[in-house]
């Protein structure tokens, strides 16, 4: 197992949060296309369909996950020692916090759209 700190300081953090967002976006977009093709809900339901609900719940879950990681990164960045390595670590962890946070913002704001519009029209 990797120690938690190593993960939070890993340069992968520079891409992780937004990569998760992209993956979720692909899943969301694909699922929506699939369901609209296979079993479109009646138009009269408007935005109150179970596919909208599922997309919203998924978005909130991904957002929560990303916020959790952002918080971890942020705290890791704050807790560094003062050796040469920890300057780099802190740099990566702070950026990681920013990327995770931004990923959360984008995920949530896209998710909110599914409260407003009918899925397949």
């Amino acid at each position: 197992m990797w120690p938690r700190e190593t993960l939070l300081y890993h340069p992968m953090q520079l891409a992780f949060g937004l990569a998760i967002w992209i993956l979720w976006f692909i899943v969301k977009y694909g699922a929506l296309a699939l369901f609209c093709e296979q079993a479109p809900p009646p138009i009269e339901q408007g935005a109150f369909t179970w596919i909208n609900a599922a997309l919203m719940v998924g978005s909130v879950a991904v957002t929560a996950l990303l916020l959790f990681w952002a918080n971890n990164c942020w705290r890791a960045a704050r807790s560094g020692n003062n050796d040469a390595d920890s300057e780099i670590n802190a740099f990566i962890a702070v950026l990681g916090a920013g990327i995770n946070l931004l990923g959360a913002v984008v995920t949530l704001s896209q998710g909110l759209m599914s409260l407003l519009l009918p899925p397949c029209l």
Binding site: F25, K28, Y29, V105, Q110
Partner: peptide, 18 residues
């Protein structure tokens, strides 16, 4: 394309402003 799907992309396009 259904408008909900468009809204996802619309949102992302605007967020690039950040």
């Amino acid at each position: 394309i259904p408008q909900l799907a468009q809204a996802f992309f619309s949102m992302a396009s605007m967020l690039v402003a950040i």
